[in-house]
Write a protein that binds this DNA or RNA. Structure first.
Length: 438
RNA sequence: GCGAGCGUAGCCAAGUGGUUAAGGCAGUGGAUUGUGGUUCCACCAUUCGAGGGUUCGAGUCCCUUCGUUCGCCCCA
């Protein structure tokens, strides 16, 4: 028998089962909802507005935006031909699409600064491991149209606010400046000059990178390579005056805001579009894929993609990594319902449905037992639903227009007219709060 | 793309070539056909991810494949 399975590197996110023992192995939705709610709130407070862009775009957008030489474009994209033979790609990151929309929809024509945030699935064809999926999710922000170092700092503060609000610990915030393209070219030359004599002692990957992408050698995990990189020239010594001033200002203001960071001149980001500020927030609790949040400034990208010369800065947080950290911090709980409706007998059953609808209309969370099982069975389920109280309808109640209201914790039960119950929803709300100990 | 490990029920698992695949949790039915959380009883894998091979005999050994875990590369 061949059963259909989800593809490698994709996962289902399920609601938490109602009680322990009903364990499932997959991710839990409540953690995701908590992250999304916190992000919305924090973005709203800083005047960022949500943008949604398509999940697939023309392949050329990513090739030009992210850089043909990067690993993401070179070997990780989900690229395919559609029925009219166009080359499409499932987005591997969020920035390129946002910038494309910014240009295509002429958002620059609105003047001033665009503060945007987004969330959604991204796709990269890689081997899955801890904190890495082929379909993964990011939440990110982009500020377009400001060169001011305060924009860098605002965006950084947003990231730390969000992570802090969620209660994350053991995070380190690494900061660097990769300067402007001219600074970087001068530095690259100096770095190659320093490394070339050691070429034979570098690990094979790094030897390869010496000509292609020497900056990446700096954060190699190979011990010998690291020892050599230890004494390599620092990019911070190659920043021009403007870059220097910008970076100094960012650092000063981060300090003023009380945001702790660690300068890491060897931090290099994998996408070509970064300029000036580059940063990563890493967790020591994640294994090899430690980066929770990554981003920086990308002053050249908008122009590169055919828009007006527009400076920009942003970041993205990996939600799988974030929820991984949160799940160990606060275990998920099953959502509980307020009331559980138990009924038996044809008339009582439709009466129960009607009553449930009315109570839902009044704002209560109500679960209706759909079985025609014995009351005993239905009570068992009422208990497990986590409801504070259940409403019981049998032939007698349906006949008289009454209902039994039973509090599951105390066992206290009383009969009242359905009309009275509905007339005093505030009273019921109050008793529910009390029953939950609120 | 490369390396290593692992797949026995919804979950946790015992089993290590000899015939009937332990046990626990969860689930279903009953004791209890208008009152739950406890308890007791019964049921719950013709089959060990899938396919092929070796063998008198395979959950156990081999191959392929799919899934999964951790790492490399790279990144969120």
């Amino acid at each position: 028998m061949e059963t259909l399975q989800s593809l490698t590197g994709t996962e289902d996110i399920l609601p938490k089962p109602q009680w322990v023992g009903q364990d499932v192995k997959v991710a839990d939705i409540s953690t995701w909802q908590r992250v999304e709610a916190a992000a919305r709130e924090i973005f709203h407070r800083a005047a960022y507005r949500e943008i949604r862009t398509p999940i697939f775009e023309q392949t050329a957008l990513f090739e030009r935006g992210i850089g043909e030489a990067t690993d993401v474009v070179g070997k990780e994209m989900y690229t395919f031909k559609d029925r009219s033979d166009r080359s499409l790609t499932l987005r591997p990151e969020g920035t390129a699409g946002v910038v494309r929309a910014f240009i295509q929809q002429s958002l620059y024509a609105q003047g001033g600064v665009q503060r945007l945030w987004y969330t959604g699935p991204m796709f990269r064809y890689e081997r899955p491991q801890k904190g890495r999926q082929r379909q993964f999710h990011q939440v990110g922000v982009e500020v377009l149209g400001s060169r001011d170092p305060r924009a860098d700092v605002e965006v950084l503060a947003l990231a730390t606010d969000l992570l802090q609000t969620l209660g994350l610990r053991n995070l380190t915030f690494y900061l660097n400046s990769v300067g402007n393209p001219e600074d970087r070219a001068r530095y690259r030359e100096a770095l190659v000059a320093y490394l070339t004599p050691y070429k034979d002692q570098l690990d094979p990957d790094s030897q390869d990178r010496l000509s292609r992408n020497p900056l990446r050698i700096l954060d190699s995990k190979d011990e010998k390579t690291q020892a050599i990189a230890e004494d390599a020239p620092s990019i911070l010594d190659y920043l021009g005056d403007d870059s220097r001033r910008h970076f100094d200002s960012v650092q000063q203001q981060l300090t003023d805001l009380g945001i702790a960071f660690e300068l890491n001149p060897r931090l290099v980001r994998g996408l070509d579009y970064y300029t000036h500020t580059a940063f990563e927030i890493q967790s020591s609790d994640l294994g090899a894929q430690a980066t929770v949040c990554g981003g920086g400034r990308y002053d050249g990208l908008v122009k590169e993609l055919g828009g007006p010369d527009t400076p920009a800065v942003g970041w993205a947080i990996g939600l799988e990594r974030l929820t991984l950290l949160l799940e160990t911090l606060h275990p998920a709980t099953a959502p509980k319902v307020d009331l559980y409706v138990v009924s038996r007998g044809e008339k009582a059953e439709s009466n129960g449905l009607l009553l449930a609808q009315k109570l839902r209309g009044a704002g209560f969370a109500v679960e209706l037992d759909l079985s025609a099982a014995a009351f005993g069975k239905q009570f068992k389920r009422a208990d497990r639903s986590g409801a504070a109280a259940c409403l019981i309808l049998g032939d007698a109640e349906a006949e008289n227009g009454t209902v039994q209201l039973k509090w599951l914790q105390s066992g206290e039960q009383s009969e009242l007219a359905q009309a009275d119950l509905l007339a005093d929803v505030e009273g019921l709300r109050e008793r529910l709060r009390a029953a939950r100990g609120e």
